[in-house]
Each structure stands twice: as C-alpha cells, then as structure tokens.
Amino acid sequence: MGARVLFRKEVTEILKTYKIYVIPLLFLVFGFASPVITKLLPDILAGLSNMEIVVPEMSWIDAFDQFFKNLNQIGIIAVILMFMGRVAEEKHRGTATMILSKPVSRTAWVIAKFGAAVLLVLLSMIPAYLACCIYTKILFGTASVALSLQATSVFAVYVIYVIGFTVGASAVMKTQVAAGGVSVGLLILSSLLPAFSQKLSRFCPGSLTGYPHSLLSGSMSLSEAFPALLSALVSTVLFLSVGIFAFERQEV
C-alpha cells in the first residue's frame, strides 16, 4: 500500500535536497569534458615531454569511449555512494520506524526507492549524452547518433543493474557503510566474472561495460548484447528480491 505516495516522496526528496545536483551535474560534466579531453589529448601529451610521442589520430569513437570510461569509473562509484544508504540510512536514523509502523508495504518502500533512483540516473544520462553528442560533432565533425544511442542504452541497463544491487544491499544491511561495502564488492565481482570464462562472459552483466566500445566501433551488433542485457535485468530483479526478502524479516 502507498507505493505511489512513497515513490512521490522519494522523487520530492531528490528534488529538494543535494541529490538533484550530484549525479546530473557529474554526468553532464562527463558529457562536456570527454570530447574536449579526447580532442586535446595529443596536444597535452606533446606538451608534457620533449620526446616525440606518436598518438593515433583521435576520432568520435574515442570521444564516446572516454565518456563511457568516465561514467563507468567515477560515475558508477558516485551512483553507489548516492544510493547505498537509501534504505539502510533510514533504518539506522529511525525514519523507517515512523514509516513502517503505518500500513506500508516494505516491498513497495524498497521498489519506490529503486524506481526513484533509476529515474534520476536515467534522466541525468539524457543531457549528458546530448552534450557529448553535440561536442563530439563540433570537435570531430562527425558522430553516429544511432551507434552512440545503442551504446548509451546498453550502459543505461548496466547502471540500472548497479542501482539494483546497491538498493538491494541497502535493504539487507543495517548501516549505509556496510551497504556500500557490499555494493563495491558486488561491483568488483561483476567486473571480474567475465574474465573467468569466455563462453559465460556474454551472459555476465559486467560485460556490458565493454560493449559500448564494441558497439561504437561496429565490432558487435546490438543483438549480440541481448544475453548480457537480459542477465543484467534478471539479476536486478533478483538482487531487489533478496533485499526485500531480508528486509521483510528484519526488526527495525
């Protein structure tokens, strides 16, 4: 009960607190800065040393590669830091006691938090992508909208997967630090798993971080990404289910 009310509260909280600034601004900076850094990289490297450094000519693909690298490193860590306390912090502070003593479903509460987090991050990716697209076109003269959109969509699913295990961990753990630790552990595990088996890697959500480059360079088609995309979405549901299952049994 109250899923809509809880979701609205989560969205309002994002809008009324610092949360509305961090992820959107960070992603937007990546959108603007990635093409610029890529364009200036040969000049920067040349200026750093008297030795002659041969840098291959940068293309629009490199600009988008840089954008996804930034999102995958700093962006993903920021997402974990932002959402690791969504449930755990409320349990720790005592706001959960105030809410859960009312006729509120714990499942609805966790899903509302997940939904609001996904909404914020996906909406943050739109201006960031547009900024990257426009700057790449200006600086490199060309950019494939179709391929870059495919790459961004694949990365968006990966971000949803990260939010899924972060919110799930937050529901299981009692403090946000513990939830953050578990989330970072899962992130590392996700990135290591594809390396264990070539065959299984196409089903690993962690593989999605390498797919944007392959899609941009044309070395893979979107349909080849489907197993990992499906696996990421199923894993998201599983992580959330585990979080809800544990949370339903917790005393707050």
Partner: peptide, 27 residues
Amino acid sequence: GFLPDVPVFYNWMTAREYLRFAGELFG
C-alpha cells in the same frame, strides 16, 4: 497511531508536508 520515544523526520520537509505524507500513507 504511534509516537516513538525519539521521533525522527525527514528534515527537508515542513510540518505540513510531513503530515500530508503520513496521511497519504493511510490513504
């Protein structure tokens, strides 16, 4: 209804907003 020993609220809300949120949770 329940009042815990140390009631903790969302600090970004006003009293009216919190009461509206609580009331909406009761439908």
